[in-house]
């Protein structure tokens, strides 16, 4: 009996020891990545938050004096007289434009992306890989260069104008660059793969016998599309839309290259605070605002996704 007891307690000791060693090793292994990200990603976010509650230095930088002026200035601006407080029209306009252009980008990429994803997902296997590859290459390649490619198309002496004049549609080059339309075009172009990939992932998992069942039960093509295909693609549609929306909302390069001052978006505004305006706290506050907006959208997204998962079970 005595041996039994000792062996029982030694067994649980072994287990506890193995567990704690495993935990320690796992943390040690994760340490470099954790440190790197704490220094290079998460830590700076905290600093950003702190910075937004400080006062701006004269030539950039901050003065270590707490204040909420920066937050105040995100929405209000001092009147010309200095005492009248009014809404910062420029900022609000830029917020509004960012949301508007981002939503439009989602719509355009969905209109083009859904057929593309559906087309790819319904190809036979070897072909499908090739088509998917064609989408994935732009997905991973330089956003700047793809924006420059659009710039080449639409600038005054660009491909489209040259072609139109050469054919004789127009005499003078059209002003396309530095407009909101140019930004929308550029964003739709660069973020299209971001819409196609999640859509494809969800359509690829379809049980196409469900479509057969739909036809069998007297649905016509439009009804099958509307009542079966679209709902089944739901998670992919949500994922793709969120990805495109969040990316567009924070877009910096594309609006900067294709847009003018009249079509600035929130990221340009943040950048401006850190460069020309040299008001870091305001830039930090605006960045936090953007982060909050993105976080809210992501939380909604994750909630939706979890709900879908729960429905599956």
């Amino acid at each position: 009996m005595a041996t039994m007891e000792t062996s029982a307690s030694s067994a649980s000791n072994h287990e506890a020891l193995a567990n704690s060693r495993r935990t320690r090793n796992s943390w040690l292994l994760s340490l470099p990545a954790v440190l790197l990200l704490l220094i290079g990603a998460s830590g700076p976010l905290l600093v950003l938050l702190v910075c937004s509650f400080l006062e701006p230095g004269d030539y950039g930088g901050v003065i270590w004096k707490p204040g909420i002026e920066a937050w105040f200035k995100t929405i209000f601006s001092d009147g010309i007289g200095g005492d009248a407080i009014q809404l910062a029209d420029a900022h609000l306009l830029i917020f509004w434009r960012s949301v508007k252009v981002s939503l439009l980008t989602v719509l355009v990429t969905f209109a083009l992306g859904f057929p593309t994803a559906y087309f790819i997902a319904t190809r036979p296997r070897p072909q499908r890989t090739v088509w998917l590859f064609l989408i994935t290459i732009p997905f991973w390649s330089s956003l700047l260069i793809r924006t420059i490619a659009i710039l080449e198309m639409i600038r005054g002496e660009g491909v489209i104008n040259t072609l139109a004049i050469w054919i004789g549609f127009i005499d003078q080059p059209m002003q396309m660059l530095h407009t909101e339309g140019a930004v929308l075009l550029g964003m739709a172009y660069v973020y299209l793969p971001l819409m196609v990939l999640p859509l494809h992932a969800s359509i690829e998992r379809f049980d196409f016998r469900l479509l057969e069942a739909g036809y069998d039960l007297y649905a016509n093509r439009w009804q099958v599309f509307r009542r079966i295909v679209l709902p089944l693609a739901g998670p992919g549609i949500v994922a793709g839309s969120i990805l495109v929306f969040v990316s567009s909302l924070g877009a910096y390069v594309t609006p900067r290259v294709l847009g003018g001052d009249e079509s600035a978006m929130i990221a340009s505004l943040i950048g401006y605070q850190f460069s020309q305006a040299e008001n870091w706290p305001l830039g930090a506050a605006l960045a936090i605002l953007l982060l909050a907006a993105v976080a809210i959208v992501l939380v909604i997204f994750i909630r939706t996704l979890c709900a879908e998962r729960a429905d599956d079970r």
Binding site: T3, S7, A8, S10, A11, S12, N13, H14
Partner: peptide
């Protein structure tokens, strides 16, 4: 195991 022991011949090899 949570309790009990494994022996190989006469040797306790549980851990």
């Amino acid at each position: 195991p949570n309790s009990g022991a494994v022996f190989l011949g006469d040797e306790d090899i549980t851990g």
